[in-house]
Design a protein around this nucleic acid. Structure first.
Lengths: 223, 223
DNA sequence: TAGATTGTTAATCGATTAACAATC
DNA sequence: TAGATTGTTAATCGATTAACAATC
């Protein structure tokens, strides 16, 4: 096992690494064997030094003048992001968004698998959505404990989000990914990842407005 | 019209304001009339000074000892985020995720409306999904120009994302919100907002791993 | 070799946090 | 009034950027 550097990892870095990974995968698929930080940086308009530091975090080692071996770099990023290990989750709320996530093929790319979905709708319970069994909400704790799952995804309406989060915490889940457009409270020791689609759309709208009328508007910094 | 402060707005601020807005809306619905930065900060575990600065950006003015009038603050946030004006978009790719977005009620909260959806599937063309008409992809440019729409949402598979983005640019769109898990190139002057679900899930996984084995793991900074 | 790229150490820049006067 | 909260100005902290020696 390679010696891991004990360095701090910021959220921005964690957001960039998956993006690099995707780009590198495309390059490898096209037969490219060697990549440089400069090449990656240019693709995304980043500073090459920033990219080099990001990549260094993963433990990948490049060679001066040559750069990185693309496949090797990919493996390092995967190991760093935990994509080389299987991670399991359950999902609560089988509406349109929940169903979409149940069929999202991207998850398997990074080692995640949704094992079971839960819903209160008796029409759905017992069926399968994209191959995943749908069970009644009241079995959540039992199933999660039985399968030793630690992550739950909430794709239910806003008004039931807190109740579901409470059930998940009671079921021993330690990480919750919330798509419901509402703030949810979890106790200390439980990680809450809030997905905020409205924020993304709002940022797009603001950047656009800024671009269109450069005089009166506020300056926007992009990531 | 209130005098607007010409201050820089960072992406983190733009992400926090919608969250504050949601919380404040809940408070107002419960009959609360006055809120303080401290109250908001406590809800999200933020520094009160940070919240105060964020709120100050919107132009809202509070009173010492009293705080802000909740309704007034909401209006300022809405105006600042552009949520008080109608913004229109089209969507390309009516798969599970696209359909989910077409029915996402959150958009109307912040003034956005998806006018039309596009898809290549002749089974879908001519139907309506959640009330939105589905049209063939080749009509994209014509419809966008006719309706003067400037924002497009890509919810198509990764492999067709670039082609759709090119079509959108050709159709005169100035902002693209891409859900396809692939990097898309757009010319200068077009805003690209990349939605990266895998990054969010990866961050959750990393935080969880960090929490569980605090000794060997790297330090993670949360937002 | 020459030149490009890595990786590290220092400098900059900006966001967050602290300190404090003003005010209701 | 006393005390809490605002808003502003200064200090800190951390991420990004720059500089540069090492190396293939």
């Amino acid at each position: 096992m390679p010696r891991k550097a004990m360095r701090k990892v910021s959220v921005p870095v964690m957001r960039r690494l998956p993006v690099y990974h995707h780009f590198l995968t495309e390059l490898v698929d096209r037969g490219v064997e060697r990549v440089s930080s400069t090449m990656v940086a240019h693709q995304f308009g980043y500073d090459p030094i920033k990219v080099r530091k990001d990549l260094a975090l993963t433990g990948a080692v490049g060679r001066p003048r040559i750069g990185f071996i693309a496949r090797d770099l990919l493996r390092h990023i995967e190991a760093f992001l935990g994509w080389d290990q299987t991670q399991e989750a359950v999902l609560a709320g089988c509406g349109a968004l929940g169903s979409a996530l149940l069929g999202y093929e991207g998850f398997s790319q990074c080692g995640w698998e949704i094992l079971v979905a839960f819903d209160n709708d008796s029409e759905l319970v017992g069926t399968r959505i994209n191959g995943k069994p749908v069970m009644p909400m009241e079995r959540l704790a039992e199933v999660c404990r039985g399968m030793n799952v630690k992550v739950g995804i909430i794709t239910a309406p806003a008004k039931s989000a807190q109740k579901i989060a409470d059930m998940m915490v009671d079921a021993g889940l330690r990480g919750i990914w919330n798509f419901a457009p509402t703030s949810v409270q979890v106790p200390e020791g439980v990680i809450l990842q809030q997905e905020n689609l409205l924020a993304s759309l709002t940022i797009l709208g603001l950047k656009l407005k800024c671009l269109q009328s450069a005089k009166k508007t506020d300056l926007l910094i992009d990531e």
